[in-house]
């Protein structure tokens, strides 16, 4: 049975699709296997049998519960693959295999599910990662919000040394590959209840190719991190952590799109703390900064890359921001969630 027949016969997910019987089989064959098809998955064992190269591996897991499921610039499926690939990429690993577990709410539309799965397959193919195992559970209506996806991913290290913040030294330079806060503000704008007429698109994109290019051009790169939940500010705060240095960034150098900036102003939200899904923060030695910047800017995912700051000897353990008017303020970890302001 192919997916078209499936969609025509029954347009919504029922509890039977999670029951393990014929309908479950139809769902797996009709949607998942047909989109994700690869020799390892097609074996349909209880576990995927994969070949592991003789090397160091990076191994990650993440869950995706984004609302709305479809948003300007992507959907939960694209997000799930990009998120997994990016966690591996910034750890200096080339994504090779991933798994995907789907928790689907009874009544979910087949058409939507297929669209999500198709976008996962498209991104996975583009990133060269194989989805080798999966699982589907259906829960009663009301017990989950449409669809949740859990993934795990395995990547092969392409850097010689694992990238940790402890390798960062005074004088190193901090680079970001483009504008911040687009994903978070796209989600907020698209969410039910916020009738804001905006054209903000999520930056959701795979960073594997950019990360690998950069690591090849600058082998002594110290640290990479994708600035997802908690935004740029959180990545920098985590980088200083307990280490023996400080970080100073220049607000006027941080790329921020006009529409995104306006939405942040309107809602009283600090863009430094807003989630990104395609932004990579790299720390490189000062003498490699130019090469790193040029490499990033010549890559499709890094055209708007900017040097935004540097690592300092003073202000140990602190992140300082030079504001647009030239003052300094401390950037701290976000405590609680950012709430839209009242007036």
């Amino acid at each position: 049975m192919n997916e078209t027949q499936l969609s025509n016969n029954e347009s919504r997910i029922t509890m039977a699709h999670g029951g393990g019987g014929i309908q479950s089989q139809e769902l797996i064959q009709g949607i998942f296997a047909s989109h994700f098809s690869n020799p390892i998955l097609n074996a349909m064992g209880d576990a995927a049998i994969v070949e592991i190269p003789r090397t160091y591996l990076a191994y990650t897991t993440d869950s995706y519960v984004v609302k709305p499921i479809f948003f300007p610039g992507g959907d939960i499926g694209k997000l799930a693959v990009c998120g997994t690939v990016n966690d591996l990429a910034v750890s200096g690993a080339r994504a090779i295999y991933m798994t995907a577990g789907f928790i689907i709410e009874e009544g979910f539309e087949f058409k939507q599910l297929e669209s999500i799965v198709a976008s996962m397959a498209t991104v996975a193919r583009a990133c060269g990662i194989m989805i080798v195992a999966g699982d589907t559970k259906v829960v009663e209506k009301g017990n989950c919000d449409g669809i949740f996806i859990n993934t795990s991913g395995i990547g092969q290290l392409f850097v010689k040394q694992a990238m940790t913040s402890s390798r960062i030294e005074t004088g190193d330079v901090i680079i970001i590959n483009g504008s911040i806060a687009d994903h978070g503000m796209a989600i907020m704008s698209a969410r039910e209840g916020l009738s804001m007429d905006t054209s903000i698109e999520s930056d959701c994109a795979p960073l594997n190719s950019l990360a690998e290019h950069l690591s090849a051009a600058v082998p002594n790169i110290k640290f990479m991190r994708d600035a997802t939940r908690g935004g740029l500010a959180t990545v920098l705060c985590e980088a200083v952590g307990e280490n023996n240095f400080g970080i100073e960034i220049d607000e006027s150098k941080i790329p921020l799109k006009e529409g995104t900036a306006a939405a942040c102003e309107l809602l009283g939200i600090d863009p430094l703390y807003v989630a990104n899904e395609g932004k990579l923060v790299a720390v490189v030695p000062a003498d490699s900064a130019e090469v790193a910047l040029a490499t990033m800017q010549s890559h499709p995912q890094g055209k708007e890359s900017e040097i935004i700051g540097c690592v300092t000897e003073d202000n140990v353990g602190k992140v300082n921001l030079i504001t647009t008017i030239g003052s300094r303020r401390l950037i701290t970890m976000l405590s609680g969630e950012q709430l839209p302001r009242i007036c």
Partner: peptide
């Protein structure tokens, strides 16, 4: 909103020390 903006832009820092800014009751 002024309280927040003063902090966010670091305005106190570029003011002379003899100007003391205090916050009022304007947070609803």
């Amino acid at each position: 909103t002024h309280t927040m903006a003063l902090a966010r832009f670091g305005i106190r820092q570029i003011l002379p020390q003899n100007i003391n800014l205090i916050s009022g009751p304007g947070c609803p």
